[in-house]
Write a protein that binds this DNA or RNA. Structure first.
Lengths: 219, 219
DNA sequence: TCAGATTCTTGCGTGTGCGCATTTTTGCGC
DNA sequence: GCGCAAAAATGCGCACACGCAAGAATCTGA
C-alpha cells in the first residue's frame, strides 16, 4: 500500500538513488574535512566514517583519496558540458558551441566552491588530480559532437573531443601554475588573467580543425 | 694518473651515467620477469632485487609497478618523436612532419618487443599504463613545434602537441580495444587494420589546426 | 689531497588501493 | 508477504606509494 514510486520520479530506481546518495555524502564529507583540517590531515577512514560507510566502501566509489575532494567541485561538469553543447542552436558553428560550453563551465563558480579551489591550488596532489578531471568530459563531449554532426564518423568525434580536453587541460595547468608562482621567475609571458580567458585562448588553435570537421560532416 | 675521462665521452658525468644505468637495469629486469612469470606474479621487490637495488630505490625511478615494464618498450619514444620532427626538412608542412614522426614511432617494432606488446595488450593494468605513456611526448613535441615555427606563441605549441598526444592516445586505445575484443560485438565500424594506419587516420582531423597555426606563425 | 656541499641510496613507518570471500541489502516474480 | 537472484557493503589481507631522516657516494673548489 501507499506505493508511490515511478509517478513523479521517472527512472532512478531506489538502488541507484542510494548509490548516488552515498557518493554525494562521500564528496561532501571529503570536502568538508579537507577544508577544516587541511587536505594532508584527512584519512580515508575519516571520510568514510563521516559519510557513515565502511572504509572499504570508499574505494568502491573513488579510487584515490584526492578524487573525492575534487569530485565535490567537479561533480557533473562532464554531463553539463555535453548538455551545454547540445543546447546551443544549430546555426552556431560547432567550434563556437564547444568553446562557449567549455568556457562556461570554468567561469567563476562564485559560490562556496571559491575557497575549495584555493585549497586545491595549494596542494600539489590535488592540483594534479584536478587537472585530470578534464578528461572526464571527453566521453560525453564526443557523444554531443557526434550528435550535432550526424555525418561525422565516431573516431573523428573522439579525436576532436580528446583534443578539446587536452587543450582545456593545458589551460588549466597553465593557470594553476601561474597562481602558485606569483612573483618569482616565469618572467616571459603568462598573460593569463582569468581562467575563462586563458581557456578560450587555448581553444583557439583548434577552431580550424573543428570547422573543417563540421564542414566535412555536412558533405 | 691515467685519468682518461671526458675525452671521448662528452658530458654524462659519472653520476648521471649510473642513474641511467640503474634505470635501464630496472626496465630490463621488470620486462624480463614479467615475460617469464606473467605480469601479475611480479612484485616490486623482485624487480628491485633483480636490478640489485633496494625496493625503496625502485620508487625513486618509477612511481608505479607497471611503469617500469612499459618503460622498457616506451623508453625514449618521446625524445625520438621530437628528434624526428626536428629532422624533417623545412619545406614539408608542419602537419606532415608531425604525422610522419608520430606514426613512425608506432610502426611495427618487429624486434623482441613483439611479445612484450602482446603481454601489454593482455593485461588491463598494463594497457592503461601504456596508453598513458603517449602523454610523455607532449613536452618534447611542444618544444619541437615551437622550434620549427619561430613566430608561434608557447601556449599554441603546447595545445597543438597536447592535441596530437590526445589523438594518438585515442588511436592507441581504439587499437588496444579492438585487439582484445576480436569477434564479439562492436559490429559497427572498427576499420582499424594496423596501428600506424589507425594513428594516421586519427591525426587527420588535426591537420587543419596544424596548417592554420603554422601559417599564422609565418605571418 | 682533502673538506664541504649535493645528490643518491636505503630502512622504516604510515596510509592507501584493491582482490577476494562473506554478509547484508535491493529488485523482482509469484 | 515470500523466496531467490543480482548487486552493493563489509572485513580481511597483501602489496604498493611515498614522506622522512640517516648514511654513502659523487661533485666542487681550494
Amino acid at each position: 500500500m501507499c506505493d508511490d514510486e515511478g509517478v513523479t520520479t521517472n527512472r532512478p530506481s531506489l538502488r541507484e538513488r542510494k548509490k548516488e546518495a552515498t557518493r554525494e555524502a562521500l564528496r561532501a564529507a571529503a570536502l568538508r574535512l579537507a577544508l577544516e583540517r587541511g587536505p594532508a590531515n584527512v584519512r580515508v577512514d575519516d571520510i568514510a566514517e563521516a559519510a557513515g560507510v565502511s572504509p572499504r566502501t570508499y574505494n568502491n566509489y573513488f579510487s584515490s583519496r584526492e578524487q573525492a575532494i575534487v569530485a565535490a567541485v567537479t561533480a557533473e561538469r562532464a554531463s553539463r558540458v555535453a548538455a551545454a553543447v547540445a543546447a546551443r542552436p544549430a546555426d552556431v558553428s560547432l567550434a563556437d558551441a564547444i568553446i562557449d560550453a567549455v568556457v562556461e563551465q570554468y567561469t567563476d563558480p562564485g559560490d562556496d566552491a571559491r575557497d575549495a579551489l584555493l585549497m586545491i591550488t595549494t596542494s600539489p596532489a590535488l592540483r594534479a588530480c584536478y587537472a585530470d578531471t578534464v578528461t572526464t568530459i571527453e566521453g560525453p563531449l564526443a557523444e554531443a559532437i557526434a550528435e550535432r554532426c550526424q555525418g561525422m564518423d565516431r573516431l573523428t568525434a573522439q579525436v576532436l573531443s580528446a583534443s578539446v580536453g587536452a587543450a582545456a587541460k593545458v589551460a588549466l595547468q597553465q593557470w594553476l601554475h601561474s597562481t602558485t608562482v606569483p612573483p618569482s621567475m616565469s618572467g616571459f609571458v603568462v598573460p593569463s588573467g582569468s581562467l575563462p580567458n586563458l581557456m578560450r585562448i587555448a581553444l583557439m588553435p583548434l577552431v580550424p580543425a573543428l570547422d573543417a570537421a563540421a564542414a566535412r560532416s555536412r558533405h
